[in-house]
């Protein structure tokens, strides 16, 4: 009985490879996450990656984002940062109107820095 059950359980898997799906899989390859294949993948990844990462793995990895964002702030978004700093100084010195904050100026900086940094940061992420 147990063997029969296994066979019936295995049967649908074979059935799914119909003419159409095999035709489709010819054009659109599908990765199956069965145990043996999965065990292959980490091996490949492991062989590819250590070259870059061994330096970083020793200590705590350092994020690339802050440096990239800072570069954006000093170069692309210098104008926005200038306005934001001006606002900060004014409000912190108590010279702003009552209830004034620098949120809008800050958002302008963020808007600029995000757009500048997003592609650069994601280029360096796995």
């Amino acid at each position: 009985m147990a063997i029969e059950n296994q066979q019936t359980a295995a049967a649908p898997v074979e059935e799914t490879t119909s003419l159409f799906s095999s035709l489709v899989s010819y054009f659109v390859p599908t990765a199956h996450a069965e145990a043996p294949e999965e065990s292959d993948e980490p091996a490949e990844e492991a062989s590819e990656e250590p070259a870059e990462e061994e330096e970083e793995e020793e200590e705590e990895p350092e994020d690339i984002a802050p440096a990239i964002r800072e570069e954006c702030e000093t170069k692309t978004c210098a104008d926005h940062v200038h306005h934001f700093k001006h606002c900060q100084e004014k409000v912190e010195a108590g010279k702003g109107f009552p209830g004034e904050d620098c949120v809008e100026e800050f958002f302008h900086v963020l808007h600029c820095v995000d757009a500048c940094a997003a592609p650069k940061i994601f280029k360096k992420l796995a």
Binding site: E53, E60, P61, D63, F122
Partner: peptide
Amino acid sequence: GGGIAMARVLFDGLVEYDDGTPATSSQMAK
């Protein structure tokens, strides 16, 4: 509104990935 009850949780090196990817906060967030 700007005020969120959740504090920042992702700091560099918080987890250790099996595949050896450096666990920076940007990487973990992604």
